[in-house]
Amino acid sequence: MAKSNEISFDSEMYSVKKTNKFVSALIYVGLVVWLLIDLFPLYYLFTFSLKSTEEITGTNVIGLPKEWLWSNYLRVFKIGKKVGASQVRLFFANGGLERSFANSILVAGLTILICLVAALMATYAITRIVWKGAQTLNSIFMLGITIPMHVALYPIYVSFSKMGILKSYWSLIIPYAAFSLSMAIMVCTGFMNDIPKELDESACIDGCGTWGTFTNIICPLMKPALATMGIYIFLQCWNEFMFASVFSDEAHYTLPVFVSNLKGSNITDWGLVGAGLVLATFPMLLVYVFMSRKIQESFMVGAVKG
């Protein structure tokens, strides 16, 4: 992307057709319109999360709240908790917002760890060790990108319930890690092919074994790939709903499941629902403000490298 700055050319010197003023104005109008379309629902969500039911339903539909009702937010924290427990017990009580937040982070963190370790080791075996069938195995792994996660739901449910790990963190972590694996191997392969093979050879001459080369030479150089993939997997786990809603109980609810439960109980209490949605969404958006480039990159790398 830096390239475009290096080569500049003076449009005055050549007979280049300049972009029509009218057209470029139209482009800006188009861009701004889509900008507003993107932001308006979020603005609407944020404002109704702070309004009373009367304001939402009639007196003030799209304006800023007349009275900023932060109490809507406090009420969200009370949902799903056993009343009367001590503060410490509250956090670990079933189903509260903080609890599902913590669950989401735990599940995503362990998924990233397991998936990346498995992917790194497999990629090493495929790209760095010469053996018959490495390419075939790689293309079999790549088929995994097209397999929809939904089809595994019923068989995995049956076998997890037989193994007794249903309604535990593992019942989410294992499928998430497996379904991110193909993408992770693909991205790691791209990055690992860019590491010169001479590094392995010199490590070998210096007496480094296969495992030593892998942990001391390759792994440190793969950090950028791991960061990119880690972000991608994190977002996939963070937003996953189908497995999370079927495989977990109150104690293991992740954030999307907690949010979906707001729906049944409080159909008329929009302020409460809005506050719950904002609390579930805006922390992620805040992270995005500071890491937008890195996050965008993590979504691009899979498609562009493939």
Binding site: L35, N239, V259, S260, K263, G274, L285, S292, Q296
Partner: peptide, 30 residues
């Protein structure tokens, strides 16, 4: 522009569903 356009991708589809359900609400929706 790029960063704003990409923002909705990061939001859980559950949140988006519940938000749009409000937007579509036949009585109070926008």
């Amino acid at each position: 522009y790029l960063s704003v356009y990409f923002t909705p991708v990061l939001i859980s589809a559950v949140v988006i569903g519940m938000l749009w359900e409000k937007i579509y609400n036949p009585i109070y929706g926008i």
